[in-house]
Design a protein around this nucleic acid. Structure first.
Length: 485
RNA sequence: GGCCUCAUGGUCUAGUGGUCUAGGACGUCGCCCUCUCACGGCGGAAACUGGGGUUCGAGUCCCCAUGGGGCUACCA
C-alpha cells in the first residue's frame, strides 16, 4: 500500500465548525492509523470571505485538540505552499494546460448574463438548467484576442454532454451520474484565483493526497472532479465523503446560536478529550461496546468501515454525560485545577477551602460552567422560604426543625475543634441522644446552612467548609426565621 | 423543478438472508444506597417509515412511495 496522505483543508472563516472539525479528525485518524501523513491546507481563495486572524483560530484548535499536522503553512513540507492564495501561478499554469487538453475553455459571459438565462429557464420549469454558453464555440485564437483586448474572462470546465461518469466512494459505494446533468463550472475566476472546484483537484494531486475526506456536500460534484483528473491523466484518489452533523430537527448547527463551533464548547467548560471522543462517535462506530476513547486510542481503533452514511444529530445530553465521565476519571487534584477559574466566579471569600469544595463537586459536575450556580450559596446565604424545612420523607416540620436547629446550635457552639469528623460526631451524638432520625437533624441543618433545596454535599460537609462562625450565624438565621414565621 | 443521497427506540448506533422473542450507549421511568443533590448498583418502557416483490425464510436483497439532507455560485 502506498503512503496514506490525508488533508484537512478548512477555509479561514474565523471559527471552527464542529462538523468541520470532525472531518479533520477523521482525516487525521485515517492518516495515523496507517502511519501516514496529515496535511493542513488553507483554502482561502474567496477573497470576499477573508477574515483577519482566522488562520490562527485553525492552528489553535488543532493544537488544543492534538491533531498535529505533518505538513502545513506554519511548518512547511515538500509540497508547499500550503495556502491556496499563494499558489496562483500553479493554478494558472494548469488551467492553461487544461485548455490545451480540451478540458476547459475561456468564457467571457458575465454573472448577470448567466443569472438571467437561469431565471428565464426557471420560469419555464422544464428539466435541468443548462447554460448554452456561446463562448464554447469560440476558437482559442479568437478567445485569446479578446483577452488581449482586456476583456474580463474566466476558465470554465468543459464537460462532455453525453455518457456517464462513475466513481467509488468508500462510504457511499459506487455512484454513477449522467454527464449531461453536470454543469460546466468556473475553474479560475476573473480575479485569477481558482474556485474550490479546480483547486481541490490540483492541490490534492500535487500534494499526493491518497484519501480525500470531505463533507457529503461534495458528493454530487465529485464526478466533475474525476473528469478533471482524467483530462490531466492523473490518478484519482480514494474518496471518503462524510455525512453532516445536525441539530435537533435535522437542521444545520448554527453559528449564531452558539452551538456550532469548537470554541463554543471549549469556553463552556467541555473538556477537549470529551469533545473529540464525542464527535468521533457521531457517525463512526468503533465496533465493540466501548465508548470511551482518547485521541491515541481513536488512532488505533479507527476504520473506514465503521463510518455511517446518514447524518447524525448532535446530542448535547450525551456530550454532557461523556464530559462527566472524563471529569470523574480525573483525580480530585486535576479536577480542582480545572475548576478553579469557575470557583473564582462565585466565591470571593478567602476562608473557603476550595479543595474541600472540589471533593464535593468532583462527582457532581458534568460541565464546568455549571459550577458557579452550584456553589453560590457558600459565598452568601440566599433568601429562602421556611417551607424548605418541611420535608415529608425526612419527617421534618416547622416545629421539630426549630427544636433540632436549636440543639444543633448549642452543641456546635461548644465544639473546640471544627472539622468534618468533629462536626459529624457531635451531631450524630445528639441524634442518638434525642432518638431521632438522621434526617430530622441533618435536613434542617443543611437547609439553614445553604438556604437551598439541593446542594452538593450534606450538612456536615457544608458546615466544615463554612467554618464555625458562619455556620452558627446561618443556623441562627434559620432559628429566627422559624420563630418569626 | 432537475440531479445525487440517506432511512433501526426521543438521540447515537449494532445488525451484511435463518443465531432478531432486534443488542449496546445517552436520555427517560422505577427501585436500592442515602441528611438533599450527585456518584454507584439493579430493573422497566421504548425502534426495523409505508407498500409491493425475490426467497422455504427479509431489519438485512430489488422496485415504488413517503420523509430528511445535499448540489444546482466567478462559496467552499
Amino acid at each position: 500500500m502506498k503512503e496514506v496522505r490525508t488533508r484537512f483543508a478548512p477555509s479561514p472563516t474565523g471559527y471552527m465548525h464542529i462538523g468541520n472539525l470532525r472531518t479533520g479528525l477523521y482525516a487525521y485518524l485515517l492518516a495515523k492509523k496507517y502511519g501516514g501523513k496529515f496535511i493542513l491546507r488553507i483554502e482561502d481563495t474567496d477573497q470576499e470571505r477573508y477574515v483577519e486572524g482566522a488562520v490562527d483560530v485553525i492552528y489553535n484548535v488543532l493544537k488544543l485538540t492534538g491533531l498535529k499536522h505533518d505538513e502545513g503553512p506554519d511548518i512547511g513540507g515538500d509540497y508547499g505552499p500550503y495556502v491556496q492564495s499563494e499558489r496562483r501561478d500553479i493554478y494558472k499554469k494548469y488551467a492553461e494546460e487544461l485548455i490545451e487538453l480540451g478540458g476547459a475553455y475561456y468564457c467571457f459571459c458575465s454573472k448577470e448574463e448567466i443569472a438571467s438565462a437561469r431565471e428565464k429557464h426557471n420560469m419555464l420549469k422544464d428539466g435541468p438548467f443548462r447554460y448554452n454558453d456561446p463562448c464554447k464555440k469560440l476558437s482559442k485564437e479568437e478567445a485569446r484576442e479578446r483577452i488581449e483586448n482586456g476583456e474580463s474572462y474566466v476558465y470554465r470546465q468543459r464537460i462532455p454532454q453525453i455518457g456517464t461518469t462513475t466513481f467509488k466512494d468508500e462510504v457511499f459505494g459506487e455512484i454513477t451520474i449522467e454527464n449531461s446533468t453536470l454543469d460546466e463550472s468556473v475553474l479560475l475566476k476573473s480575479d485569477g484565483l481558482p474556485t474550490y472546484n479546480f483547486a481541490n483537484v490540483i492541490d490534492d494531486h500535487l500534494m499526493k493526497i491518497s484519501h480525500v475526506c470531505r463533507g457529503v456536500e461534495y458528493l454530487s460534484s465529485t464526478p466533475k472532479y474525476n473528469i478533471l483528473y482524467n483530462a490531466f491523466g492523473w490518478e484519482i484518489p480514494e474518496y471518503i465523503h462524510l455525512p453532516h452533523i445536525t441539530k435537533e430537527g435535522g437542521k444545520k448547527l448554527s453559528k449564531r446560536e452558539g452551538d456550532a463551533s469548537f470554541d463554543d464548547f471549549y469556553n463552556k467548560g467541555y473538556l477537549v478529550d470529551a469533545i473529540i471522543n464525542y464527535i468521533a462517535l457521531l457517525g463512526w462506530n468503533p465496533g465493540g461496546e466501548r465508548e470511551i476513547f482518547n485521541l491515541k486510542e481513536l488512532e488505533e481503533a479507527f476504520s473506514i468501515e465503521g463510518l455511517s452514511k446518514s447524518s447524525a444529530m448532535f446530542d448535547i445530553k450525551k456530550l454532557n454525560w461523556l464530559n462527566g465521565e472524563y471529569i470523574r476519571k480525573m483525580t480530585v487534584d486535576e479536577f480542582h485545577e480545572k475548576a478553579l477559574p469557575y470557583y473564582k466566579k462565585a466565591i470571593k471569600n478567602p476562608n473557603i477551602d476550595l479543595h474541600k469544595v472540589s471533593e464535593l463537586l468532583h462527582v457532581r459536575t458534568e460541565v464546568l460552567c455549571d459550577i458557579p450556580e452550584q456553589i453560590d450559596f457558600l459565598e452568601e446565604l440566599p433568601e429562602y422560604d421556611t417551607d424548605l424545612y418541611v420535608h415529608k420523607k425526612m419527617k421534618t416540620n416547622y416545629e421539630n426543625s426549630l427544636e433540632n436547629l436549636k440543639v444543633a446550635y448549642d452543641v456546635l457552639e461548644s465544639l473546640d475543634t471544627w472539622n468534618h469528623d468533629e462536626i459529624n460526631n457531635c451531631l450524630m451524638d445528639s441524634i442518638k441522644r434525642l432518638g431521632i432520625k438522621n434526617g430530622q437533624m441533618l435536613w434542617p441543618v443543611r437547609t439553614a446552612l445553604s438556604g437551598k433545596k439541593f446542594t452538593p454535599g450534606g450538612a456536615i460537609e457544608i458546615a466544615d467548609i463554612l467554618g464555625k462562625a458562619e455556620s452558627l450565624r446561618r443556623i441562627k438565621v434559620g432559628i429566627d426565621k422559624l420563630e418569626n414565621r
